[in-house]
């Protein structure tokens, strides 16, 4: 069962997954492109690290994009068929959803491995001065965890009914509207700020997206 579900999901998403894997492999290599190993004593380490950090901003974006695309391709065909086929299969509904989730997680491993391999190659190709180290495995691990959280979130939204999605969007939209009204009324009440803070500070769900996405650092 799981193998068949995995196969179908792979078939639906293979093209876009390939693109994501290529991007995931290339990103670490691009981030160290300015490093000149032959000019070891003279290049500006601070500038190099700043460049790597700038490229590092793309990792969480790529993780979220991979997660979103996989979640959409997971449920797309079922949505188009109004879930008739899935609901008529002889397994408990939650079991089916769980298998789909698991299949997506397996597919998510591909870009994670691509990031790891790209980081390993980039690290091996770069001679580092004393004091700097490469962190290919930590980078890949952070990428994997961020992709997992994003995938679970998008999966939950995609798996829900239109009513659920409407409720989620309604809550977010309501929050924004209320905040705007409070702003216009010149009050000092800030609803969105603390809410966003809770998302991005441990143990919030988006905390893994923050921090230093650095392949090379001290």
């Amino acid at each position: 069962m799981f193998r068949q579900l995995l196969y179908t999901q792979w078939k639906w998403s293979r093209l876009v997954l390939l693109i994501i894997c290529l991007a995931s492999f290339a990103l670490p290599l691009l981030s160290v492109q300015g490093v000149r190993p032959d000019d070891l004593g003279r290049f500006d380490i601070e500038q190099m690290l700043a460049g790597i950090q700038t490229w590092g901003l793309l990792y969480p974006i790529l993780a979220a994009a991979a997660a979103l695309i996989l979640a959409m391709t997971t449920w797309g065909p079922d949505h188009r068929g109004k879930h008739i086929y899935a609901l008529s299969l002889p397994i408990p509904r939650w079991h089916y959803a769980l298998l789909r989730f698991g299949a997506g997680c397996v597919l998510l491993a591909a870009p994670v491995v691509a990031v790891w391999l790209g980081a390993l190659v980039a690290s091996a190709a770069t001679r580092l001065p004393a004091g700097l180290e490469a962190y290919p495995t930590i980078l890949a691990m952070r990428f994997a965890l961020a992709a997992l959280v994003a995938y679970a979130a998008f999966f939950a939204i995609s798996a829900g009914t239109n009513r659920t999605a409407g409720i989620v969007l309604g809550v977010i939209g309501g929050l924004v509207v209320v905040q705007m009204i409070l702003l216009v009324a010149d009050t000092n009440i800030n609803l969105v700020g603390p809410f966003m803070l809770q998302l991005f500070v441990w143990p919030g769900p988006l905390e893994i997206f923050t921090g230093r996405w650095m392949l090379i650092d001290v």
């Binding site: 196969y7 078939k11 068929g81 299969l89 397994i91």
Partner: peptide, 18 residues
């Protein structure tokens, strides 16, 4: 209600698995 991205062979294999 079948997944139109599959071939007949794949559709049979998918269905049979359940």
């Amino acid at each position: 209600h079948l997944y139109t991205s599959l071939t007949i062979s794949e559709a049979l294999a998918f269905h049979a698995a359940f």
